[in-house]
Computed example of a mutant assay.
Amino acid sequence: MNDIVHVRLFTEVFITLFVIMDPPGTVPIFLGLTGAMTHKQRSHAARTAIFVAAGVIVSFALFGQQLLSYMHISLPALQASGGLLLLLIAMELLTGKMEEPQPGTKGVNVAMVPLGTPLLAGPGAIVASMLFVQRADGSSRDWLAIVLAFVLVCVCLWAAMRFANIVHRILGESGTLLVARIAGLLLAAIAVQLVADAVTAFVQAA
């Protein structure tokens, strides 16, 4: 098995991305963002979010370092911008603005931003994927390990969001609203932590 796939690298990539992208933790936030959607719209949003997140992470993993260097953007700056964007989304969840109807655009926008990015494909996942690609020695077993681990994490994310439909039916509208407020609070804390870590990195680099 290790001759075909680098098992240790596969394990490291899977555990790291699973912890950072946190499939179980996306359930309450997904419910909060898609509480006003139908079952079909919610399923479509889940699929779209996965494809967007995968596209963003793969693009940064392959070309991110060159892009950031060309634009003179540091990794802490990327992390801080993602934190600020998440903080704006958290405020909308806490104030109920996310549930306001926006016919024709709501489902698509929510699936792309903030679900696809920066919630799933956030600064942590982007930086981690860039580092793992840099570690790969170019052998097929290393690349296969990275790809398989990433695909497995995406499958876990999709399963978590699909399971959210069942949670929504159990909780009902009132329960979903409560979960949305709690998710907003947690998301705000995550956003503040991202910004704080970025500021710390800036200070240490100064």
Rank of each mutant, 00 (worst) to 15 (best):
T95A: 08
S174Y: 09
I89H: 08
L148I: 08
Q102N: 08
I126E: 01
G96V: 00
A125L: 12
D142A: 10
V127F: 14
M130S: 10
F150W: 07
L157Y: 10
G104I: 03
S140E: 04
M98Q: 02
I166N: 10
G172Y: 06
L84I: 12
W143D: 00
P101W: 00
L148Y: 02
R169V: 02
L86Y: 08
P114W: 07
F132I: 09
A136Q: 06
M98I: 07
R169C: 07
G124Y: 09
S174P: 05
V153R: 15
W158N: 06
P103W: 05
M98T: 04
I89S: 15
K106Q: 15
V113M: 11
G122F: 14
T95D: 11
F132K: 07
C154T: 06
V151F: 13
P101H: 01
R169Y: 05
F163E: 01
A159N: 11
L85D: 04
L171E: 03
A111P: 05
K106V: 02
L144S: 06
L131S: 13
L131M: 12
L94R: 08
L94A: 09
V127T: 15
L119N: 09
V133E: 09
R169H: 09
I146S: 00
L88Y: 06
L131G: 03
T176W: 03
I146Y: 01
G107Q: 12
G116E: 02
E100H: 12
L87W: 09
P103M: 07
G172K: 04
A125R: 12
I89M: 14
A125C: 14
S174K: 15
L120R: 01
G96W: 08
V153A: 14
L93E: 05
R135S: 05
L171W: 04
E99P: 00
H168L: 07
L84S: 11
C154L: 15
T95R: 10
M98W: 00
P118M: 11
G116W: 02
V155E: 09
R141M: 08
M98E: 04
D142Q: 08
E100I: 05
G96C: 06
G172E: 03
E100L: 14
P101Q: 02
V155F: 15
V113Y: 13
A128L: 10
L94M: 10
A121W: 04
E92Q: 11
G107Y: 03
L94I: 07
L171V: 05
S139R: 12
I166V: 14
L171N: 03
V133L: 13
